[in-house]
């Protein structure tokens, strides 16, 4: 035993390939560490998004009709288009890894550029969708939605557009508690500076504009309201537009949080791609050393997977309720 223990390894005179960090013995070990580390990171990401998915699950199971209403109002064509864009970008990313493995520099560079273009396209579409929602007054943040001036109304996307109804909003339960907090920033300054401007706005407080309760009525007629909904949408046995709106706002909150976090990950991904592009262009990756491409690829595919779930959950579920009136 003891003699075996004396056996030593000289780590200093063997060949050090480029890109090998000092704490590792060889490229295999480094590659394996990077791979496990990246997967651990992705597990962390799963749980990070998982918290949001749990929130979605809880609220959807309580208020399916409000969620269907909110979901049906999203633009399914933009959503589906973006899904396609992301899947194509995943393909180009996978090809980038392939060309890195086979040591083809120009093909790598082209694939990375394509991936970046597609990622940017996705974000652009997302920005258009966000802007639409903003102009329609359904960004769920108190005090935003200010631009919902009367003259901008015709711009909003057709079909299921929700007209703002100032009267119902006056009774908004939002305004009731802690009104001081609602006042902050927006309505106060608008009315102080120029009183007459107020008239032009349907929504001086920037409240969440939603009046459509048709799905709740449908569910009531067909008798598939959940027990939570029977309490959550009704006042004195009547459907309460404000209470229903509050539930739709939760949907939009979840929509903005989830897609926003996803978009943030896309932006980080684009940063990674830019770095990869520079490295690939300078020929850093060879058939022996391509771990950064592979790891960034894992990240990119993960972000794609999140979207693969977000798309049906946010855009599609509940479409069949609205199929008649859509």
């Amino acid at each position: 035993m003891a003699t075996h223990a004396i056996d030593t390894h000289d780590t200093h005179d063997h060949y050090h390939p480029p890109g090998l960090q000092h704490q590792f013995e060889d490229m295999g070990q480094q590659q394996e560490s990077a791979s496990i580390g990246m997967w651990m990171f992705l597990v962390q990401e799963i749980m990070f998004f998982g918290g949001m998915f749990t929130v979605y699950l809880v609220f959807r199971s309580k208020f399916p009709m409000a969620f269907a209403a909110g979901s049906n109002h999203l633009n399914v064509y933009w959503g589906a288009g973006n899904t396609v864009v992301l899947i194509v970008s995943s393909l180009t990313m996978a090809l980038a890894v392939h060309y890195a493995q086979t040591g083809k520099r120009m093909a790598q560079v082209v694939c990375i550029i394509l991936t970046m273009i597609l990622g940017a396209t996705f974000l652009g579409v997302k920005a258009i969708e966000y802007a639409d929602k903003y102009h329609e007054g359904i960004v769920p943040v108190t005090g935003l939605n200010l631009r919902t001036a009367l003259h901008t109304e015709p711009n909003t996307a057709g079909g299921s557009h929700v007209p703002g109804d100032p009267d119902s909003l006056e009774k908004s339960s939002l305004d009731a508690p802690s009104s001081a907090e609602n006042q902050r920033g927006t309505s106060g300054s608008a009315s102080n500076s120029a009183g007459h401007v107020e008239d032009e706005y349907v929504n001086p407080n920037g409240n969440f504009l939603w009046t459509d309760t048709s799905l709740a009525e449908l569910a009531q007629k067909e008798d598939y309201l959940t027990t939570a909904e029977k309490v959550g949408y009704f006042s004195n046995g009547q459907i309460d537009a404000n209470k229903f709106r509050d539930k739709v706002r939760i949907f939009y909150y979840i929509y903005f949080m989830m897609t926003g976090l996803h978009a943030l990950h896309m932006i980080i991904g684009l940063g990674l791609m830019a770095w990869l592009l520079w490295k690939a262009w300078s020929g850093a990756f060879t058939a022996d050393y391509f771990s950064p491409v592979e790891m960034s690829g894992l990240y990119w595919h993960f972000v794609d997977i999140v979207w693969i779930f977000l798309f049906p959950l946010l855009y599609l579920l509940g479409r069949h309720f609205g199929a008649g009136g859509h």
Binding site: L42, V43, I46, F53, S61, T227
Partner: peptide, 28 residues
């Protein structure tokens, strides 16, 4: 690792929902 990630997600879903789905009055 990949499976564990989804397994833990399932734990979070399942044990949260076992509360929401069994509220005795069924009403929140």
């Amino acid at each position: 690792t990949a499976i564990a990630g989804f397994f833990w997600l399932a734990i979070m879903f399942a044990y949260t929902m076992q509360d929401y789905l069994t509220r005795s009055q069924g009403v929140f």
